[in-house]
Design a protein around this nucleic acid. Structure first.
Length: 270
DNA sequence: CTCCAGGGTTTGC
DNA sequence: GCAAACCATGGA
């Protein structure tokens, strides 16, 4: 069915901004997965898109997934006097912060440490094909992200095939804690930022950066601005070592994502 | 072959 | 409290 999206929305940039790692183009459509829901979406013209789901599912699942109730146009206007961020928002126009599944974010960003984006993609994909549920769609065969139950009996040998490396015990521990319902329960959605941050960091292999990524991409806490190697380079080369993101307050995470995307597109500047 | 990747934990001071 | 060592693997 056809829908209209009027706010910032660029499928390519959303998929290449380092927040989701398995959103390929299939038969001209971009594929997104949220838990057991699969969406194929294709831009037809400026504001017109073809989607594979019903209107009800679009409204209940995908509208919040793409954070479409928030105006990113307004957020982009908050860059007064910040010349670098003005450039970054221009470069990243169309990026949105996805509201992804927290469990998937925990495992994905535990994996992400000291890996390149292509390596993260390969590792996450391997986890899905080895342990996730198989779904046949109109376009392809897809594997969902594995649940804690599906990862429960995984052997070290097969997990190692997913390229987990030294992060393997972290993943196994997270699976164990999720099975006993001590991490990433539904109650965690209600926690305030500080509590959520503390709870996430209690998971082995989750430090400041990964906790902020989980909060930003899994809990839509758009005030969180993860500082990784690229953001650190930006702070040092563009801001003389002074972190500019706290000054953006409750939308710092969106600015961070614009800046991160910019750095990926202009690696030679850093 | 080397170097580094959307870092975190452990150890030593 | 902080800095340094160490971590396993793949892509460039």
């Amino acid at each position: 069915m056809l829908i209209t999206i009027k706010d910032d929305f660029n499928l390519f940039k959303i998929c290449n901004s380092g927040q989701c790692f398995r959103c390929p183009t299939v038969n001209g459509y971009t594929r997104f997965i949220f838990r057991n829901h699969i969406l194929y979406i294709k831009q037809l013209s400026d504001e017109s898109y073809d989607i594979s789901c019903t209107e009800e599912l679009w409204n209940t699942i995908w509208l919040p997934y793409f954070d479409l109730t928030r105006s990113y146009k307004k957020i982009r206007r908050l860059t007064t006097k910040d010349t670098f961020m003005k450039k970054a928002t221009r470069e990243g126009l169309g990026i949105r912060i996805l509201r992804q599944d927290p469990w998937e974010m925990v495992i994905t960003f535990i994996l992400s440490q000291r890996k390149s984006i292509p390596a993260i993609k390969k590792s996450v994909e391997a986890l899905c094909t080895h342990f996730g549920s198989l779904v046949t769609t109109e376009h392809e065969i897809v594997y969902l992200f594995p649940t804690p139950e599906q990862l429960k009996d995984a052997t070290d040998d097969i997990l190692s095939e997913c390229g987990l490396g030294y992060r393997l015990p972290y993943v196994k521990d997270a699976v164990e804690q999720a099975l006993y319902n001590t991490i990433v329960t539904n109650e965690w959605y209600e926690f305030d930022d500080h509590t959520l941050f503390t709870m996430l960091k209690s998971i082995k292999g989750v430090g400041d950066k990964v906790a902020n990524c989980i909060m930003l991409f899994g809990y839509n806490r758009i005030g969180r601005a993860p500082v990784d190697t690229w953001i650190e380079k930006i702070i040092n080369t563009k801001y003389n070592g002074v972190d500019p993101f706290p000054s953006y307050g409750d939308v710092a995470g969106v600015m961070q994502q614009y800046a991160f995307y910019y750095s990926l597109q202009h690696k030679d500047e850093f």
